[in-house]
Design a protein around this nucleic acid. Sequence first.
DNA 1: TAAATTTATCTTGACCTCAAGATAAATCAG
DNA 2: CTGATTTATCTTGAGGTCAAGATAAATTTA
Lengths: 173, 173
Amino acid sequence: MSEKVKNETDAVDAIMAQWQREKPEFDLTAMEVLGRLKRASAMLSPKIEKVFLEFGLNQPEFDVLATLRRSGAPYCLAPTELFSTLMVTSGTMTNRMAQLEKKGLIERVPNPDDARSKLVKLSDKGFELIEAILPHHVQNGLSLIAGVDGGSLSDLNQSLKDLLTALGTSEAE
Amino acid sequence: MSEKVKNETDAVDAIMAQWQREKPEFDLTAMEVLGRLKRASAMLSPKIEKVFLEFGLNQPEFDVLATLRRSGAPYCLAPTELFSTLMVTSGTMTNRMAQLEKKGLIERVPNPDDARSKLVKLSDKGFELIEAILPHHVQNGLSLIAGVDGGSLSDLNQSLKDLLTALGTSEAE
DNA sequence: TAAATTTATCTTGACCTCAAGATAAATCAG
DNA sequence: CTGATTTATCTTGAGGTCAAGATAAATTTA
């Protein structure tokens, strides 16, 4: 458990030391791990988005194209499925779709089963773009975690899975 | 390392299965762990902010008050120290300070050493509010991770620390 | 089948954030 | 000491998100 030999301190250690001094009566175990989780996510986000920006997409736009792409042919989903998968509101999805449609990366096609919605479909241009980005995105991810040894990474993955399971998951990338 | 017996699947497993089907040639190890990290953070944020909202603060406002509080008496910092600690821009900090000042939770006092800036100081009201919130915040954090067993949590904390160290940290809560 | 209800999406208004440029004080060069 | 540069902060304009309300189609009920 805590038999590792690493003595390096990160920014969260400094924060915890302050809290310990000011509020010694608090059990800080949760704040520590939750603080690290938040910080890690915050630091990684711009590094991940950087690749998308080089291809003219921001993170939200990439998320939509990636969700359509991994759904498999014909790369077509209902808006409801998209925004529930992506954990955003319907209004947010409306904006994103308008943006992507203007760029010609998706198309709205009539839903034969439900006239209240139009389906969202990856255009040829959108398909080609996401295909072009994906290898770079995957490689970028590998680079970002390259400094962490395999065992620690495997621990991290399993622990996060435990946490997500405990929370009861949902959302996408 | 991977000798645990848990077979539960989370949402990221489903996403990875789609990618595996569509893009079997990709090494998805990074996407998997980064996806879980992002998702865990996204799911936790509203649950953490909920406590602050009950006290009339949002997350950004809490962050400022908490940073001042843990800095210790006299609970007074320069804007630059605040926004670099909190990893936001100076303009964002300007807005937050205006908000908190309007609520009477902070005061701007002249900086004797540098007339370009005014120091930000927790007001009595601000101090009392953060003191009132903190126990609830700490308890809430403990509740949020209650479903994860101690060993997994300890692994998670250490792995995140490894990751943050590898990334080269910065920011606050 | 017509009214009531539910579902799927869009619209509106407000909030938070950032990047880039503007201001003003502090510090440095000569 | 004076102009040039750096530093600290604020202002402005644009983007992304959400909550709540508005629409309109689908479904249920009588």
